[in-house]
C-alpha cells in the first residue's frame, strides 16, 4: 500500500536506506569477481606449486600477456557504462597492427611518428561511429558492426599478407622490462595500468565520467536534466576507438607483426571481461576496477590451462562462456531485486 511506502521524517527511513544500500551495494559484483580471482589463484597455487605457479613473475605475466586486452576492455567499459556497445574493437586493433607495421616496415616512418598517427586514426574512427549513433539515432550495435566490417576490410586494403616488423626501435621497446624487484613488467603492461588509472580518475572525478554514469542510468532523464547527451556519447565512442588503437599498438608490440587476421573477435573478449567485472550491460552501474579483475580472471583461466598442459586451449573459451553466463545471471538477480 502506498501509504506505508515512505516516511522520510521518521528515523526508520535512514536505517532502511542503509540496509538497502548494503544489500544493493554496487561494489558487490566487483568484490565477487575479485574473490573469484583470489579463489582461482589459490586453487592454481595448490595444484601447480611444484611447477612454479607461485612465482611472482607468473602473476606479473597476467598483466604482460593481457595488456592489450585490458586497454581495449577499459574503452569498452566506458561504452557499456553509457548503455552502448562497441563491436569494432577487435577490427580496430587488427587494423592498427596492420597500419603501424606497414608505416614502420614498408613506408619507413619512425615509430615516434607512427604512434600518434595510429592513435588518431582509431580515435577518429570511434568519433565517426559516435557521431552517426548520436546524430542519426541508430543503434550502436549496428553502427559498430559496420565499423567492425569496415576496419577488417581496410586491413586487407593495406596487405593481404601479414607484415613482420624488424624495426629496431620496435623490438627494443618490446623487450624493455621494468623491474619491480620480484619480477618484471613490460612497457605494454605499464601503459595498460596507466590507462586503467586515468580511466578510474575520469570516471569518478570528472564531470564527464559522471555524465557517462548518468546517461547509462537513464538517457531520457540525463537529457531532461540538461546534460550534453550528444557530446558525451560521441566522446565515449571516440575514447573507445582511441583505446582500441592503443590496444592495437600494444598487441603489435607483443606480437611484433601486423596481420589482417589479428584480434578477430577480441571485442567479445573485451565485453566478456567488462561483464565479468560487474558492469551492467544495460549501463549505469559498474567500475573500471572490476574490468581489471575481469581481464585478470580471463588471463588466469588461460594460465591455468597452460599449466594443466594436456587441455586444449579451447577450454579457455568454454570456461569464459560458463563464467559469462553465471555473471549475467547474477546481474539479472541483482537488478530484479532492485526493481522490487
Amino acid at each position: 500500500m502506498s501509504a506505508t511506502t515512505r516516511t522520510p521524517t521518521t528515523p526508520e527511513s535512514r536505517t532502511t536506506s542503509t540496509s538497502a544500500r548494503l544489500l544493493g551495494d554496487r561494489r558487490l559484483p566487483v568484490l565477487v569477481t575479485a574473490g573469484l580471482f583470489l579463489v582461482m589463484y589459490i586453487a592454481g597455487l595448490s595444484r601447480y606449486q611444484n611447477y612454479g605457479f607461485g612465482e611472482p613473475q607468473v602473476f606479473l605475466n597476467l598483466f604482460i600477456d593481457n595488456s592489450y586486452l585490458l586497454v581495449a576492455a577499459v574503452g569498452a567499459t566506458f561504452v557499456i557504462m553509457s548503455g552502448g556497445i562497441d563491436l569494432s574493437v577487435g577490427s580496430v586493433i587488427g587494423f592498427t597492427t596492420m597500419l603501424t607495421a606497414w608505416l614502420v616496415q614498408d613506408v619507413g616512418l619512425p615509430l615516434l611518428v607512427v604512434v600518434p598517427i595510429s592513435l588518431s586514426v582509431g580515435a577518429f574512427g570511434g568519433f565517426l561511429m559516435g557521431y552517426v549513433i548520436h546524430n542519426f539515432e541508430i543503434q550502436p550495435f549496428i553502427v559498430t558492426l559496420a565499423g567492425l566490417f569496415l576496419f577488417r576490410g581496410l586491413c586487407l586494403v593495406i596487405s593481404k599478407e601479414s607484415i613482420a616488423i624488424s624495426d629496431s626501435a620496435v623490438s627494443s621497446l618490446a623487450e624493455t622490462r621494468i623491474s619491480l624487484g620480484v619480477g618484471d613488467l613490460s612497457i605494454g603492461a605499464v601503459v595498460a595500468l596507466v590507462v586503467l588509472g586515468v580511466a578510474f580518475y575520469v570516471l569518478h572525478y570528472t564531470r564527464f565520467g559522471r555524465r557517462v554514469y548518468a546517461i547509462g542510468g537513464n538517457e531520457q532523464s540525463a537529457l531532461l536534466m540538461g546534460l550534453p547527451l550528444g557530446g558525451t556519447k560521441i566522446a565515449v565512442y571516440t575514447m573507445s576507438g582511441f583505446c582500441s588503437a592503443l590496444a592495437g599498438l600494444l598487441f603489435m608490440l607483443y606480437i611484433q607483426s601486423g596481420d589482417p587476421l589479428h584480434a578477430v573477435g577480441m571485442e567479445l573478449d573485451a565485453i566478456a571481461a567488462v561483464v565479468i567485472g560487474g558492469t551492467l550491460l544495460t549501463g549505469g552501474s559498474g567500475y573500471v576496477l572490476g574490468t581489471l579483475f575481469g581481464v585478470l580472471v580471463l588471463g588466469l583461466i588461460k594460465s591455468i590451462i597452460q599449466f594443466e598442459g594436456t587441455l586444449s586451449s579451447w577450454w579457455t573459451k568454454i570456461a569464459t562462456g560458463v563464467l559469462l553466463c553465471a555473471f549475467i545471471l547474477v546481474q539479472r538477480a541483482m537488478t530484479a531485486r532492485k526493481a522490487t
Binding site: 554496487r26 559522471r210 554514469y213 548518468a214 542510468g217 537513464n218 532523464s221 531532461l224 536534466m225
Partner: peptide, 12 residues
C-alpha cells in the same frame, strides 16, 4: 522543471 515521471538517474 519536474516532470510527472521522475527524471533523475536512480543509479547515482
Amino acid at each position: 522543471t519536474v516532470y510527472q515521471e521522475v527524471n533523475l538517474c536512480p543509479n547515482l
